[in-house]
Amino acid sequence: MRPVAPNLVIGLALTGLVGAMALLGAFWTPYDPLAMNFASRLAPPSWSYWLGTDEFGRDQLSRLMLGASASVKISILTVILAISSGTIIGIVSGFLRGWPDRIIMSLNDALLAFPGLLFALGLLAVLGANENGIILSLGLVYMSSVVRVVRGTVLSLREREFVEASYVMGNSLSFTMRRHILPNCIAPLTVLATSMCGWTLLAESALSFLGLGVAPPMPTWGNMLAGSRSFLDQAVWLVIFPGLTISLALLGINLLGDALRDRLDPRMRRRVG
């Protein structure tokens, strides 16, 4: 047994913390995150309000916890949508080649060339600024990079001798794809998926910041950060804690992604003696 990599431990700890916070936040918070209490508005961190309160006197810890469940749900669903649709399109494109590939890739490149956030904004205007709208539009934006990565991997894999060996054995195209091509796409996809989790968290924050995300009073990390900017000089904790949460969550996810990639690759598991 080889020693456990530090990035796996730290990554697991950080993502575990965020996950636990999101899970707990969905059922229980120390205070009602939506209840206003003007008596204690803009209170600094203290024993009763660990992370202070906002301009309406709402407990920031409670809001961060509820916001975690919203943000985590959005980023996970977005990544699942982008990876699954992108993988299917990428594999089809890489395997068929010829004109289907050319059409798919031209459309995909057009998508890629468009600034992602701008495109998501446009889609949100059509789909409506709510959770489902954000997931759909961000999923579509990020799908194009998944398509690129998967298609490239498939193109190089299909020329490898073990894929040819599979044909010579009489295996069908779909079997070869499931058995040899897909598993070998996992490593690049894990890396992409984890960094995409990060992008989604950021993009969701940015969209909320612009007022196009989840509508207040429902908190997300992004709209908490956005709302706090007018109180920067009076209540710096309102910026620090959501910002810190986002950064730590991103760090954890990225470390976990690195560690997972190493773990999932059999070549990294045991070395030739």
Binding site: R160, E161, F162, E164, A165, V168, M169, G170, H180, P266
Partner: peptide
């Protein structure tokens, strides 16, 4: 034909699926 025609490739490093 598929059952009876088999092939051994040149490069043993790329003809076996690494996973």
């Amino acid at each position: 034909y598929r059952r009876n025609c088999q092939m051994v490739f040149q490069d043993p490093f790329s003809s076996l699926d690494p996973r």
